[in-house]
């Protein structure tokens, strides 16, 4: 079946290292996206016409452009058009942060406008200051809604980083291909075992996170 290839030498360790490359890119991008997304979302909820127009164009670009196209533009296009030679990993982080910021910004905006006006009015009526209103009433509610959604974004980010193999980063799929090629003679069926393992590894990386997100969503709603 081809699973025995993985037990040879350091093959399985290499596969895990490949997975870590993809995970590292997605975690860095998620970190950047969350920070920038909160800023973007807050700006969008202000309803200033210029910000609204610009952010709508930005969101629409992200909505209809496949991440792969964005990767190609940054990785191949930037170097040709501007002479800017970005390493593959940096281009991947730029693209995934660009995408993630839009997603996160939209989530933050959605959460901010979903807090009913009555919450503000009631706390003012109780004599709370503006700071107290935000600190004790509004922000806790937003965080409760936001955390499950942003955890969900992490799993989507991890799944999307599998694309980086297409711009030459050696991550888990590429390592898998290398292992299959190297053992072509000794175990011709390696493709099944290796890709089934990669499939399972991605599942094991994403499943707990998406369960956590679902659990928190149920518990806090």
């Amino acid at each position: 079946m081809g699973f025995e290839v993985l037990l040879k030498g350091t093959n399985f360790i290499r596969l895990l290292q490949g997975l870590w490359v993809a995970l590292r890119i997605s975690l860095i991008s998620v970190g950047i996206s969350i920070v920038l997304g909160i800023i973007l979302g807050t700006l969008m909820s202000l309803k200033k016409p210029v910000i609204t127009a610009v952010s709508r164009v930005y969101l629409e670009i992200v909505r209809i452009m496949p991440q792969m196209v964005l990767l190609f533009i940054v990785f191949f296009g930037f170097s040709k058009a501007m002479g800017l030679n970005l390493p593959a990993e940096a281009s991947a982080i730029i693209v995934f942060s660009f995408w993630g910021t839009a997603e996160m910004g939209d989530l933050v905006r959605g959460c901010l406008i979903s807090i009913p006006v009555i919450q503000y009015e009631s706390s003012y009526a109780l004599g709370m200051s503006k700071f107290n209103t935000y600190f004790y009433v509004i922000i806790p509610q937003i965080i409760r809604r936001l955390i499950p959604l942003s955890i969900n974004l992490i799993t989507r980010m991890i799944k999307t980083t599998s694309l980086v193999m297409m711009i030459g980063i050696v991550e888990v799929l590429k390592v898998g291909q290398q292992i299959i090629e190297a053992n072509r003679k000794s175990s011709p069926h390696a493709a099944f075992g290796v890709f089934a393992t990669v499939f399972l590894l991605y599942f094991l990386a994403c499943w707990p996170i998406s369960r956590l997100s679902k659990y928190l969503e149920k518990r806090w709603s």
């Binding site: 799944k159 694309l163 799929l173 898998g176 890709f195 089934a196 990669v198 499939f199 994403c206």
Partner: peptide
Amino acid sequence: NTPLLVQLFFIYY
């Protein structure tokens, strides 16, 4: 919980 690229590789190869 798995990317399409990985699913395609599994189905195709």
